[in-house]
Design a protein around this nucleic acid. Structure first.
Lengths: 71, 71
DNA sequence: AATACTGTCAACAAATATGATGACACATTT
DNA sequence: AAATGTGTCATCATATTTGTTGACAGTATT
């Protein structure tokens, strides 16, 4: 799998988990101590996030890093 | 959890999984198409790896990304 | 119609990861 | 003793992520 494909899959997973909680990008961003543009960049697969970024998102969503990257 | 702590935990996990296969850093590096210094940097927790780097390591180890980050 | 919210995109500086190379001490092998 | 393998560290240039700001169209709300 290429880098871009992984990024897209991770993004879709974040969207899926965020909507499951009924959150907007802004709400998730606030819980992550990030801004919504950063979240959007991850969700749209425009970036290859670091482990820590994914960990922060997972924590905000109340799940483990491993659970987040079940793609 | 702080960034450095996550990096250390990920590193320990990579070491654990690599040794489970009886591989040296050089062998894992070759399977990842990286060099051993890059692997060492991840294993020693000196870097906060990107999702794709972790994915490449997981693939070389024959496991999923989610399995790799079960920390 | 005006306001606020949402997702999206672009650009910038700063921080960081990556790939590459060289070097070192230690242990193992020949 | 010499050669090889292993893990570790440092440095460098390049690529990329991150944080931030501003902007825009579409939607919903008042």
């Amino acid at each position: 799998m290429k880098k871009e494909e992984l990024a897209r899959k991770i993004g879709k997973r974040v969207i899926q988990l965020r909507k499951k909680k009924g959150w907007t990008q802004s709400e998730l961003a606030r819980e992550c101590f990030k801004d919504r543009q950063s979240i959007e960049r991850v969700e749209s697969g425009k970036t290859n996030p670091t482990a820590y970024t994914l960990y922060e998102v997972a924590s905000a969503l109340g799940i483990s890093l491993a659970e987040l990257v079940k793609i």
